[in-house]
Amino acid sequence: MIRYVTKRLLWMVPVLLGVTLIVFTLIHIAPGDPAEAALGFETSDEIKAEWREEQGLNDPFLIQFGRYAYRVFTQLDFGTSYSTRRPIIDEIKARFPTTVKVCLVAVTLTNLIGVPIGIISAVKQYSFTDNLLMVLALIGVSMPSFWVGLMFSIIFALHLRWLPASGLYGPKYYILPSTALALVGIAMSARMTRSSVLDVIRQDYITTARAKGVAEYKVIMKHALRNALIPIITQIGLSLSILIGGAMVTEVVFAIPGMGTYLVQSIRALDYPAILGTSIVIAFFSSAILLLVDLLYALVDPRIRSQFKGKKHLRGSKA
């Protein structure tokens, strides 16, 4: 188990290096002059040239990349922001918790609502309830969350004046963005749970459980759900990692000072270190979540658990 986790953690290094290389390349082939963005139009060409030299932007691409990667991966030094001149790591530290909070609220909401809907739909397959829920889920899946966010702002903030439309100064401020983010997730989670549960309740061992005299709700909640959990966990992990990286537009819509807003600002300002730093942090947490998901599989399914134990052990027990 420990060996497996270590192996997976080591695998994250090439993944992150790959992400860094891709983002680095994209930034450098994108048009625009970071010096102008950082110093302003009025600055004289000499000062800009001096600044470029200072930032190492005149060096060959591979040297720049090597230097950056070396600093990040050996010293965890993400450099300083072009626009604020503060260390990137501080900028991220100030914003990351906000994004995580909004995402966690959204994911919790997603699954607290989505999973039960999926179970109900599966148990009452083809009933009116099932059809109604699945049509609603289809509508939910089809709405982009930034649009839902805008609609929510218009309805609940502008017209009804129930909730604040922007910023993040208290619990009330989480409601609209989290719900907007969760809506798509709820729909996806409901559909995923439904198909997963449907798959499982047709299995023979469910009939065995019924034949044993197990009560129907227990058949579903204990025997079926535990088996249906793997796709559900995958879905939760994926939606969490997508949200952490992809809540950008929704964050902008609600003016939430999180990673998404920061990334969008940085791209506009051609703030290379900020773009890179944010991307790497997001990539790191996405991979960490996926690792966590894989470990959760082992917790849920003993067949996967036994794969984690060394091959030696398996050979011994089979004999």
């Binding site: 061992y205 065995t208 025997h223 088996n227 003993p302």
Partner: peptide, 17 residues
């Protein structure tokens, strides 16, 4: 009344001992 099923490979729940 209890029942023994046809296929032992699928009649046991894989996630319980």
């Amino acid at each position: 009344i209890s029942m023994i099923f046809q296929d032992p490979m699928t009649a046991l729940n894989p996630v319980f001992t």
